[in-house]
């Protein structure tokens, strides 16, 4: 029996190795053929003309994620403080399940609402020829990372020892000063973990932004139609020929994205470990 259970345990390790090996093996040939520098820093992606430069995709992914973090983190953080400290109990008990519902909603549903509400609204407000844009993608991503940021930060804030807050209140600080100057700094590594998790979510999301970003491989600009690393794979995967350079280039994008994600995960583990020790 022990052997069987050991094997089950090793399956997870095997899967990780399998994924890594296959992604590397499938991702290398195209990079070799195109040239690493021209692949990573080429400014045009045009499969029809055999041009495979993913700089616009990389920059779009970075800008898009940064934008989602800039909008989503403050809103998420203050909502978490509200839920953990300031909210009346009945309201918190109502909001909490709603936030976790938001976390469970499939990403295509976000994409659908983005397509039908956000995109036309942006087109009207900003007088654009089309509303599909980096801005629309950023807003959708910001909403999508909100639940993980709220629930992780809230957990961290609730783990702050009551004595810290009581001491602060007894010294004459107001409640708000206590939340922001005592509780939040004490929970900072948990909140940092929430932010890193949000970054991971945002950079890995494909379907929702495929529905609102327009998917043209332009250099990123807020009101332009753009293509992310994830959507770069998604949009052409069904149309590329098996074994063609185009398909192999998609695998190479996958490898680049995988490296990004592994970097973020390593960072997350570091933050979480620091929290455990601190």
């Amino acid at each position: 029996m022990q052997v069987l259970f050991t094997l089950c345990g090793l399956v997870a390790v095997g899967f990780v190795l399998l994924i890594t090996v296959y992604l590397v093996i499938s991702g290398i040939p195209a990079i070799r053929e195109i040239g690493l520098f021209r692949f990573l820093f080429g400014k045009t992606w045009a499969a029809g003309q055999d041009q495979y430069g993913i700089l616009p995709l990389i920059l779009t992914s970075i800008y898009g994620t940064a934008g989602a973090i800039v909008i989503g983190v403050p809103i998420g953080f203050f909502t978490a403080v509200f839920l953990a400290k300031a909210a009346p109990k009945w309201l918190a008990n109502l909001l909490r399940p709603a936030v976790s519902l938001l976390a469970g909603i499939p990403s295509v549903v976000y994409g659908l609402v983005g397509m039908c509400v956000l995109v036309p609204a942006l087109r009207g407000w900003l007088r654009l020829p089309a509303g599909d844009s980096l801005l629309a993608a950023i807003l959708v991503l910001a909403v999508m990372i909100l639940p993980s940021i709220i629930s992780l930060s809230e957990t961290a804030l609730e783990a702050v020892p009551r004595e810290y807050e009581e001491a602060s209140l007894a010294l004459g600080a107001t409640k708000l000063e206590t939340y922001f100057r005592i509780s939040a700094p004490a929970a900072k590594s948990g909140i940092a973990a929430a932010v890193v998790l949000g970054i991971g979510r945002a950079i890995g999301e494909a379907m929702a932004i495929m529905m609102v970003a327009g998917n043209v491989a332009n250099m990123p600009a807020l009101t332009q139609s753009v293509r992310f690393l994830t959507t770069g794979i998604a949009i052409e995967l069904n149309y590329s020929q098996d074994g063609s350079l185009q398909r192999q280039a998609l695998f190479s994008i996958g490898l680049v994205l995988f490296l990004f994600i592994m970097l973020i995960n390593a960072f997350l583990n570091l933050v979480l470990k620091r929290e455990k020790e601190g």
Partner: peptide, 13 residues
């Protein structure tokens, strides 16, 4: 690690 891999990578795999 498996939990952190985004679904588009799983699609490729």
């Amino acid at each position: 690690t498996l939990a952190g891999i985004p679904s588009i990578i799983y699609a490729l795999v």
